[in-house]
């Protein structure tokens, strides 16, 4: 009697109705956790090609923030050696010039960053320097955006906002032709 009832119970199939739900749950879990291999990087806009070298001599020296990276991957910023860790803060101070110093940019609109490297400079170092300079501008835009609109600066911001911010602090980065030191044979 007891044996019979037990077999009857076993004949019932497992309820498969909820299996689909479990499957979807797993699917969603994987969708959320997987990072799809994507291409990220520093987006730059190169200047159009022109035969003659841009004339940097007619600019006031106080407005030019010159950064040189040599073939030994050392930095020379406005004639002084510098560690890359300090570059971002220093560049920010130069651009904004909060203390109105005579030897720093007249206004953020006039600040120009001039980047020059050797042909022997490591790409890694070059990109690190570029990253710091872009980081300086990104942080300044972020600050301005927070003060003016109370929101974080991002690419999704309305174009009008972005335009006014970039009008006030334009990123002007001029890259000179590199010198021929340390080229690999």
């Amino acid at each position: 009697m007891a044996k019979k009832s037990s077999r009857d119970r076993m004949k019932n199939e497992i309820n498969a109705g909820s299996m689909a739900d479990i499957a979807f749950l797993l699917l969603i879990f994987f969708l959320v956790t997987t990072t799809i291999a994507e291409d990220k990087g520093i987006l730059v806009r190169l200047p159009p090609w022109s035969e003659e070298e841009p004339d940097i001599a007619k600019l006031k020296t106080r407005n030019v923030y010159s950064v040189l990276v040599n073939a030994q991957n050392q930095l020379l910023v406005r004639g002084e050696p510098m560690d890359i860790e300090n570059l971002r803060e220093n560049a920010k101070e130069f651009i904004m010039n909060p203390t109105k110093r005579e030897d720093m940019s007249e206004s953020p609109k006039k600040a120009i960053i001039s980047l020059k490297n050797d042909r022997g400079t490591n790409y890694k170092t070059y990109l690190a320097v570029y990253n710091e300079l872009k980081g300086a501008y990104d942080e300044l835009w972020e600050d301005l955006c927070q003060r003016r609109y109370g929101v974080a600066y991002s690419e999704e911001l309305p174009t009008a906002y972005k335009r006014t911010i970039k009008e006030d602090i334009p990123m002007i980065l001029s890259e000179a032709e590199p010198t021929n030191f340390g080229e690999e044979e």
Partner: peptide, 17 residues
């Protein structure tokens, strides 16, 4: 980069992690 500029391809991305 120079060749890209000469060809008018100015939008460039330095791929990085």
């Amino acid at each position: 980069k120079t060749q890209l500029r000469k060809s008018g391809q100015l939008r460039v991305n330095y791929s990085a992690k």
